[in-house]
Design a protein around this nucleic acid. Structure first.
Lengths: 343, 343
DNA sequence: CATGCTTCTGTGAGCGTTCACAGTAGAGAA
DNA sequence: TTCTCTACTGTGAACGCTCACAGAAGCATG
C-alpha cells in the first residue's frame, strides 16, 4: 500500500511508477501503450498488470508536448445560433461524430461560431494547432473560416460539399440530386402534375442539387416547368412556411410540393393548414432529411432519408485518414425514400 | 526574416523565440503571459511587440504539463439520445456555456453519455484529470456518474438541483416552484377552475417543485384538488400528448392545463386539437421553459421563461470559482411569465 | 557606508511523455 | 567458434512551459 501524498490529493501514477511496478523500463511501458510492437509477451503482460494495479492513465499533455499532436479534434459550426437552436440535424451529427471519435479515444471540442468575433477567435485557436483537425458544418458558401483553415493546412472535412474551395478540401455528403429525383418521381407516380418546390439556400451546392433533381424529373415526365411553382428558403422553419404561402398565392392549383428540408416542410404544413388545404388529400408534401422533425410533424412526413449516422462516421474516418497523411477525399452517400402520411 | 524550417511546415515560435526577439528572458515573457505582475512597463511593451511580430501562441500542452491544469472543461449530458435530439433547450444551454467559457479562453469538451458504456468511458476520462471541471446536465435522479465524480473530487456544477447528492455539489436552477405558481395564478386569474397538469418526471426536484407550486396555488385559490387532473410525463413531446389525452378522458370538463415543459405542451396541443378542443377558447394551455418550441407552437405558447442565458453564465461562473478553490454553491434564478396566444 | 526593503529580472530544474539510439541475448549460419 | 541477424530492452535527451529561487538595481533609512 503506497501512500504518496497523505492528506492531500494523491499524485497520479506516472509511467515511471508503472515501469517500477512491472520491473521494466519506461521505454517498454511506452511501447506497450502505443501498440505493443517489439515487446515480449511476458513484458506485455507484466506492464498491463501493473497498469491495472496502479490505475495508471496516460498524461495526454506530456504526450502531446512531444508528439506535437493534440489528439483532439474540433467540431466547428458556422451557423447563426437560431439555426442551431432550431434544427435537430445538428444534434444528430454532433452525437454521431462524438461517438465515432470516442471509438478512437479522441475528445471533441465544440466550437460554435455564431458571430464574427467568435469566428476570429476560433480560427486563431485552430490554426495555433490546438486541435489536429476540424469537422466543419456550414451550409453557407464562401465561408471565410473554411478558406483560412484550408490555407493554414489544417486537416478539414466538411459536411456537405463546400463551395469555392476547389478540390483540396474533403467532404462527406448525401446524394442530394438523386434524393430529390426520388422524391419528385414519387410525387409524379402519385399522379401529381402541379408540383411545387421550396428550395434550400441556392448559394450552396446542396440547395442547387436538390433543385436540379426536381427540374430533371419534371422534364423527364414531360411536365412543363413553371417558375411560379418555385420558392426559395434557407432551411429554416419560418422560410418553409413563407415559401409555401407564396406558392399557394402564385399557383393555387398546386397539388404537391417538394420541400428541401423537413424543418421547412413543417412550416409548409402550417401554411397549408392555414390555407385550408388537406394533406395529403389536396396537396402532397415531401420533405428532405428524415430528421426528428419528420416524425413529429402532423401528418408524419414522407421524406428523403439522409444517412446521418454514416455521414458522421465517414466524416471522422476521412478526417483521421487525412491527419494520418492521406489525400483529401470526397464521399457521396446514397439516400432513401421514406414513405409516411403526407403523400 | 527567420526561416526555421524551409520547405516543410514551419515550427511554431516558442516562448524562447519571443524572449530572444524582445531581448528579455523566458521568465519575463512567462510573467507577461500570466498577468504581467512584477514586470516593468518597458519589458511588458517589448514582449507584447515580440509576440505580435512572431505570431506566438502559447503551447497549452507544455503549460498544462507543469501546472497540472488542463484549462478545459467538460460538458456532460447524461440523457438518452432521443431527448438530446428532440429538446432545443440543450442547444441553448450548450451555446451559452460555450460562449461563457470562450470569454475565459477555455475550450469545451462535449461528452454525451447515452449508454452505459459511454458513461463508464467518460467517467474514467474525467477522473483521470483530463478536464478541470464538469458542467453536468442530467434531469434524472440518482445519476451514478454525478456521484462518482463527486467522490473523485472533480469540480462539478449541475444544471437543476441534483437529487441525493447532499449539499456537496453546486447547482444552478430556475425557481421552479415560483414559476409554476405564477403560471397557475395566471390561469386562475383567467377564470379557469378545472385546471389540469402534466408534470415532469417526479424523481427530479424540478418535476416535484413544479407540481408543488401548482398544488399550492390551487389550495390558496380555494379550488379543490382532483387527482384526475394530474398526469405525469417525462418532458418529452410524446409524453405530453399522452398526458393530455389521459386528462381529457378522466376529466372532460378541464378548462386549462399547465404542462411542465414546452415540448410536452406541444404534444398537449396536438392531443387537444385531435379531441376537437379549441385553444385558448375551450382550454388554456401553459407551458414551461420558453424554448424555441414555445414560439413555433400553434398557437404560440404562454409559458414560464427560464433564463437560460443567465443559467449557463452562472454555471460557468460557479464552476470556475470552485476550480479556484471556493466552496460549492447553489444559485436559484427567478423566472418570468411570458404571455402569448395559448391562454 | 552599511543595511534593508521593494521591484524587477535571469536561471536551473522539472513536469511526464516519446523517440532515437545503443546495447543485450539468443538463434541460426558459416 | 565466430559472425550476423532478429527480437527485444534500457537510457538520455528532448518537447515548451512555469515555478522557485537567487540576484541586481534603486532608493530610503539607520
Amino acid at each position: 500500500m503506497t501512500m504518496t501524498n497523505a492528506g492531500g490529493r494523491r499524485r497520479p501514477p506516472t509511467i515511471h511508477d508503472v515501469a517500477r511496478e512491472a520491473g521494466v523500463s519506461r521505454g517498454t511501458v511506452s511501447r506497450v501503450l502505443n501498440g505493443g510492437h517489439y515487446v515480449s509477451p511476458a513484458a506485455q503482460e507484466a506492464v498491463n498488470a501493473a497498469i491495472r494495479r496502479t490505475g495508471y492513465v496516460v498524461n495526454r499533455h506530456a504526450r502531446s508536448l512531444i508528439t506535437g499532436r493534440s489528439d483532439s479534434i474540433g467540431f466547428l459550426l458556422t451557423e447563426p445560433q437560431e439555426r442551431f437552436f432550431e434544427d435537430p440535424n445538428f444534434n444528430v451529427l454532433l452525437r454521431g461524430c462524438t461517438q465515432a471519435l470516442a471509438a478512437h479515444d479522441i475528445p471533441l471540442l465544440l466550437m460554435l461560431a455564431g458571430t464574427e468575433d467568435e469566428r476570429r477567435r476560433i480560427t486563431r485557436y485552430i490554426t495555433a494547432g490546438h486541435v489536429d483537425g476540424v469537422l466543419l458544418v456550414s451550409s453557407h458558401s464562401g465561408d471565410p473560416v473554411a478558406e483560412q483553415l484550408r490555407e493554414a493546412g489544417v486537416p478539414l472535412v466538411a459536411c456537405g460539399k463546400p463551395i469555392g474551395l476547389g478540390s483540396k478540401v474533403s467532404y462527406v455528403a448525401a446524394d442530394d440530386r438523386d434524393g430529390a429525383r426520388d422524391m419528385v418521381k414519387h410525387l409524379v407516380s402519385l399522379g401529381r402534375r402541379r408540383i411545387g418546390m421550396v428550395t434550400g439556400p441556392l448559394d450552396t451546392p446542396g440547395g442547387v442539387e436538390r433543385l436540379a433533381g426536381y427540374r430533371e424529373v419534371l422534364a423527364e415526365a414531360g411536365i412543363e416547368a413553371d417558375d411560379r411553382l418555385i420558392a426559395s428558403g434557407d432551411y429554416s422553419r419560418a422560410s418553409g412556411e413563407a415559401g409555401a404561402e407564396q406558392l399557394l398565392e402564385r399557383a393555387p392549383d398546386m397539388d404537391a410540393v417538394f420541400v428541401a428540408s423537413d424543418l421547412m416542410a413543417q412550416g409548409a404544413l402550417t401554411a397549408l393548414h392555414k390555407a385550408g388545404r388537406r394533406v395529403p388529400e389536396d396537396v402532397s408534401v415531401g420533405g428532405f432529411d428524415d430528421s426528428t422533425a419528420a416524425i413529429s410533424a402532423t401528418p408524419a412526413l414522407t421524406t428523403i432519408r439522409q444517412p446521418y449516422d454514416r455521414i458522421s462516421t465517414e466524416m471522422v474516418r476521412v478526417l483521421l485518414a487525412q491527419i494520418g497523411g492521406e489525400e483529401p477525399a470526397a464521399v457521396i452517400l446514397p439516400t432513401e425514400l421514406v414513405r409516411r402520411d403526407s403523400t
